[in-house]
Design a protein around this nucleic acid. Structure first.
Length: 264
DNA sequence: ATGGTTGGGGGCCAA
């Protein structure tokens, strides 16, 4: 057994299209557990064999056609697999959890993007997003040690976006979304691991739009992807990484992988 | 304020 587990979160935006990139990443960075969002395929069409051949024999998947879909891919067997919807059938495949050997619960979320228009009466997708996060607040379990991660589609801090002022009314950075996300963080007694390692004055992004001629030059990024842990586990988190170079890969996802090292 | 690009799947919707 390793003394640490390397746990990765990555919105892959089609796992079948980018399977080779993912396998290269796993080998190069020696990840133990990979949590994917937006796999964009049905459960049966997930590339199980490719992961198994790479040494990841334990794949837990909830997919759907064309949209959404999440998975946990692991070198070690996990237990207590749970795919319960957060707010009901409307969610799509946006949640999967499993227990680590230490008993800590690992939860992988793909929170709805919700669109740009941050108005729950004008935009049903935004209402779905807000309902999703409200439901997370209402069902938080602060006494259960856990690591939660995924594409939260909310960038809470000023320096989680390229322009705080210009994005204040744009979905992902509005005060009402940040308020709800902070409620969830308090209700669950969570630590935002990226901000544990990088103070609030530093720009930290995990996503850059495809709609930019030169993403690196303009650097109009957002920190939409997160890894949180129970505050009681904070001292067990030994490292946090963002693999920004994967945004420069041929045919990249618009999100890059983020990772922690968790000491068992 | 707008527009810009990508993926799935074969329309256009979602991001």
């Amino acid at each position: 057994m390793n003394k640490t587990l390397k746990i990765v979160s990555w919105n892959i935006n089609s796992v079948r299209l980018r399977i080779n990139m993912v396998l290269d990443f796993l080998q190069l960075h020696q990840a133990d557990i990979l949590c994917l969002q937006e796999i964009k395929c049905e459960t049966d069409l997930f590339p199980y064999d490719a992961f198994k051949q790479a040494g990841y024999e334990n794949c837990y998947v909830i997919g759907q056609k064309s949209y959404n879909g999440v998975a946990i891919i692991s070198k070690i067997p996990l237990t207590h697999i749970n795919i319960a919807n957060v707010t009901g059938d409307q969610d799509g495949a946006r949640f999967i959890s499993a227990n680590l050997p230490s008993g800590v619960v690992l939860k992988n979320y793909y929170i709805p993007a919700g669109g740009d228009i941050a108005d729950e009466t004008e935009n049903v997708k935004f209402k779905h997003k807000m309902d999703f996060v409200r439901s997370l607040c209402d069902t938080a379990t602060p006494n259960i040690p856990q690591i939660i991660l995924g594409d939260f589609n909310i960038a809470p801090y000023e320096h989680d976006v390229w322009s705080h002022k210009q994005l204040l009314e744009v979905g992902s950075h509005t005060p009402q979304e940040v308020y709800l996300l902070n409620n969830f963080k308090q209700a669950g007694d969570f630590c935002d691991i990226a901000r544990h390692f990088h103070d609030a004055s530093q720009k930290v992004y995990s996503w850059w739009s495809y709609r930019s001629k030169d993403w690196q030059k303009s650097n109009r990024g957002r920190r939409l992807d997160h890894i949180w842990c129970s505050n009681s586990l904070k001292d067990s988190i030994k490292n946090f990484d963002i693999y920004q170079d994967y945004r420069n890969h041929e045919r990249p996802s618009d999100h890059v992988p983020i990772a922690i090292e968790y000491a068992l």
